[in-house]
Amino acid sequence: MNTAPLKIVATAAMGIEAIVADEVKKLGYTDVTVENGKVSIYGTERDVARLNLWLRAADRIKIEVASFPATSFEELFERTKAIPWADFLPVNAEFPVSGKSVKSGLYSVPDCQAIVKKAIVESLRKTYRIDWFKEDGPLFKIEVALLKDVATLSIDTSGSGLHKRGYRYFHGKAPLKETMAAAMIYLTRWTPDRPFVDPFCGSGTLPIEAAMIGQNIAPGFNRDFVSENWPWIDKKVWDEVRTEAEDLANYDQPLDISGFDIDHRMVELSIANAKEIGLSELITFKQMQVKDFRTTKEYGVLVGNPPYGERLGTDEEVRRLYQDMGKTLLQYDTWSFYFLVSHPNFEKLFGRKASKKRKLYNGNIRTDYYQFFGPLPRKKGDI
Rank of each mutant, 00 (worst) to 15 (best):
P192K: 01
D156L: 10
E276H: 15
Q215R: 15
I262E: 13
G259P: 08
S258T: 03
K236G: 04
L162Y: 05
E268T: 14
R265V: 07
L187E: 15
L248Q: 15
P219V: 05
N216P: 06
P199K: 03
K236W: 07
V241T: 10
E178T: 11
L206H: 02
R223C: 05
K134V: 13
R223H: 07
L176P: 01
I142Y: 06
K275L: 14
E244Y: 04
A210N: 02
P175K: 04
P254M: 08
L153Q: 00
I142M: 07
R242C: 09
I257D: 01
A182F: 04
M212Q: 12
V241S: 07
I257L: 02
T157K: 04
N273G: 04
G159M: 09
M266C: 10
M212Y: 01
N222P: 02
G204N: 08
P254F: 09
E135V: 12
D136I: 08
I213G: 00
A274K: 06
I208F: 03
G137M: 06
P138W: 05
D198K: 03
R223A: 06
D198R: 01
A245N: 08
A181I: 04
E228P: 03
E246I: 08
E240C: 08
H163G: 08
L248N: 14
E135P: 09
S258R: 10
E135N: 11
V241F: 11
D234K: 10
G220Y: 05
A151Y: 10
A145R: 11
L187S: 12
P254C: 09
I155Y: 09
K173V: 02
D263M: 10
L176V: 06
I142T: 10
I271F: 13
I142K: 09
P195C: 03
V267F: 09
A174V: 10
H264L: 12
H171Y: 10
S160I: 03
L248F: 11
A274D: 06
F140P: 00
V197P: 05
A151H: 13
A211K: 00
D149T: 03
D224C: 09
K236Q: 14
V267T: 03
S203R: 02
L162G: 04
G220K: 03
E143S: 15
I142S: 06
L153D: 00
V237P: 00
K148H: 09
E246W: 10
Y186V: 11
T179K: 03
W238K: 01
V226K: 01
V241H: 12
P175G: 01
N273C: 06
E209M: 00
D239A: 14
E244I: 08
S227D: 02
H264Q: 15
A210L: 01
P207W: 02
D224G: 15
Y169G: 15
